[in-house]
């Protein structure tokens, strides 16, 4: 009798073990798949920009509970929620600058709406937001790079003259004009995307990208000599030895100045204006 009652128990224990193993394996496989999927969805499409104050992407995916309150409180309908099966991680907020850029509200309602701090409440001044970084990505189509005066991106920038400046360069095509090169400054650009939105080209030449994509990084040991010199007030290396010119006696050469100087006559054999030299030569021939 004792044997009989033990036997079914032994089987049920075996059953229990195999059931548990089956369940554990099944769930683990499911979990593995889910984990892989979650890692894949972490790579945010480069044109999807997170709202102001968003934590770094790695922290954000653990902090955002996908409630969409930031989307609701965005007065310009800039923010969208990633849809199930879409490119952006399901349920997380983003915006596409080319469609609707961030208007940089002073009171930052999206950050105020966030219950978890995934949009960090430390962001109190919208100018400190770093949603992304504008980059003038295509010099071949940007009108200002052709020597034209479009500069809509510069004019529309909420931080004009800080985040985008126009840098003058010589225009060798015409010889007498300047290029006004729109130049983004990463220490001021918030990544609001108004420049990308406003770019007049059918496909924007200036685009807001995640900062890690848009920004290079110089090696930590790099020093720029002229900056170091300014900081120290003097050159940190031995001063350059003055260049020795092997010239006939009584003749000097002034680099970056008058050029070749005949001390005897104090005349300049080749004047500053090359046309004079040419005309002189022409006159000599006649």
């Amino acid at each position: 009798m004792a044997e009989k009652s033990q036997k079914p128990r032994a089987i049920s224990r075996r059953q229990f073990m195999s059931e548990t193993a089956k369940t554990a394996c099944g769930v683990s496989l499911f979990g593995l798949g889910l984990g892989m999927y979650s890692q894949q969805t972490r790579s945010l499409p480069s044109l999807a920009i997170r709202p102001p104050g968003a934590l770094a992407e790695d922290d954000f995916s653990g902090a955002c509970i996908r409630c969409g309150l930031c989307v609701r409180d965005c007065p310009f309908d800039t923010l969208k929620l990633g849809r199930f099966g879409g490119d952006v991680t399901t349920g997380t907020p983003y915006f596409t600058a080319r469609d609707v850029p961030c208007e940089m509200c002073d009171d930052i309602p999206c950050v105020k709406a966030c219950p978890t701090g995934a949009l960090s409440p430390d962001l109190e001044n919208i100018d400190d937001a770093r949603m992304g970084l504008a980059a003038l990505i295509d010099q071949e189509t940007c009108l200002n790079f052709q020597g034209l005066r479009c500069e809509v991106c510069y004019r529309i920038c909420p931080l004009i003259e800080d985040a985008i400046t126009l840098e003058l360069q010589h225009n060798p095509r015409s010889g007498s004009h300047a290029f006004f090169i729109p130049t983004v400054h990463s220490d001021a650009c918030t990544g609001c995307g108004k420049c990308e939105h406003a770019c007049v080209l059918p496909e924007a030449a200036i685009k807001v990208l995640p900062r890690n994509l848009a920004k290079g990084k110089s090696a930590e040991h790099y020093r720029l000599g002229w900056e170091e010199k300014q900081k120290a007030g003097e050159s940190l290396v031995n001063p350059d030895v003055e260049h020795q010119y092997n010239l006939p006696e009584g003749v000097e050469y002034e680099h970056g100045g008058r050029g070749l100087i005949d001390e005897k006559t104090d005349s300049v054999p080749f004047g500053g204006n090359p046309l004079d030299t040419l005309n002189q030569h022409k006159a000599d021939l006649q």
Binding site: G31, L34, G35, Y37, S38, Q39, T41, R42, D58, D59, S61, G62, C64, I65, R66, G68, V71, K80, L81, R83, F84, G85, G86, T89, T90, G91
Partner: peptide, 29 residues
């Protein structure tokens, strides 16, 4: 999974959330 991936993984597939977000923010799939 949340611990290992540092992501709220279940919310990627949670049918309850997907149902609600679908109706409120756009269906997707």
């Amino acid at each position: 999974l949340a611990l290992v991936t540092q992501t709220i993984v279940w919310e990627l597939v949670n049918p309850v959330s997907i149902f609600y977000r679908g109706f409120l923010y756009g269906m997707g799939f």
